[in-house]
């Protein structure tokens, strides 16, 4: 399921962009993510799915370093996380209600802040920086709104601004946390088009999504979180199959009891049921 080393011209980038081994995350003493292992190959488009509270956002926050790992190891592009400094290779689109703040900021300014990973301290924007910012704005289709204040834009346009901000640093790996939350269908389609162009360029994408909608055709691989563990990792799933206890008809390598159709419990206790017990259980 993971394609190995792709482009020979990029040399170093043959290492997996993301490699998490037995990662666990603890929030306020409670284990939230337990023993999650995830390797994302270059150029792969991975959808990280699951119900609310399943830990999908927490997992992506752990992968970006926003949540420290309580256990396990994380490597980005083959470098252990603690010594990773190539932040210009990573683009992050956080989960946001909007792109505004207490002071007006134009689309151009917000997108320009994504170029910081490639700028030196106390230097003005170079010609290359300006070109990259204009390209990023064009790619999300906001060129005619570049000078507008972000808070005057619609929710979908604000979300596209945040994607352009991540694009401005020309990263190879994108983390997107629910980019389509609260965005109407036409804008979801516009977002999906943008992500499709990233995929064509060979970018690696890790997308957290509650529902894929128009982004479904882009997905190479689905990873489903359930109660803090990776419950499924394999071929793309439809939005409804994600919430199916058996993940639709897709066969998986996980502990799914095919011999017990409809069985919802996946514990290892032997199940001894007789007609009498079941009747008592139903009454009690």
């Amino acid at each position: 399921m993971s394609r190995s080393a792709s482009d020979p011209t990029t040399g170093a980038s043959t290492a997996a962009p993301v490699q998490l081994r037995d990662g666990s995350v603890t929030i306020a003493g409670r284990p939230v993510i337990r023993q999650a292992s995830l390797t994302v190959a270059p150029g792969e488009f991975v959808a990280l799915m699951g119900a609310n509270g399943s830990g999908k956002s927490t997992l992506v926050r752990a992968l970006t370093g926003l949540r420290p790992l309580a256990g396990g190891t994380l490597e980005l592009f083959g470098t252990p996380f603690d010594s990773f400094r190539d932040w210009q290779r990573v683009g992050f689109v956080p989960q946001r209600a909007g792109a505004g703040s207490g002071v007006p900021a134009s689309v151009q300014e917000v997108v320009a802040s994504g170029r910081l990973t490639r700028r030196r301290l106390l230097r003005p924007l170079s010609r290359a920086d300006k070109a990259a910012i204009a390209r990023a704005i064009e790619l999300v289709g906001l060129t005619d709104k570049a000078k507008d204040g972000v808070s005057t834009l619609s929710g979908g346009q604000q979300q596209r601004t945040l994607i352009a901000r991540a694009l401005a640093g020309d990263p190879e790996l994108f983390f997107l946390d629910e980019p389509t939350a609260g965005v109407d269908l036409p804008n979801q389609k516009a977002l999906a088009d943008t992500l499709g162009r990233l995929k064509e360029r060979g970018s690696t994408v890790v997308l957290v999504a509650h529902e894929l909608g128009p982004m479904a055709p882009l997905v190479d691989r689905s990873v489903v979180m359930r109660d803090g563990r990776i419950a499924y990792d394999g071929a793309p799933l439809s939005d409804s199959a994600v919430h199916d206890p058996l993940f639709g008809d897709v066969h998986t390598q996980h502990h799914v009891h095919h011999d017990a159709p409809g069985a919802q419990q996946q514990d290892f206790a032997p199940k001894v049921t007789s007609l009498i017990e079941r009747t008592q259980g139903d009454q009690g």
Binding site: T64, G65, Q88, A99, S101, A105, G114, G169
Partner: peptide, 22 residues
């Protein structure tokens, strides 16, 4: 004024700034 790009980015979105290596 000199660190305006950095200060703007951090104030605008702390999480994004952290992942940008600031």
């Amino acid at each position: 004024l000199g660190l305006a790009p950095q200060l703007f980015t951090v104030a605008q979105d702390q999480e994004f700034a952290a992942v940008a290596g600031l």
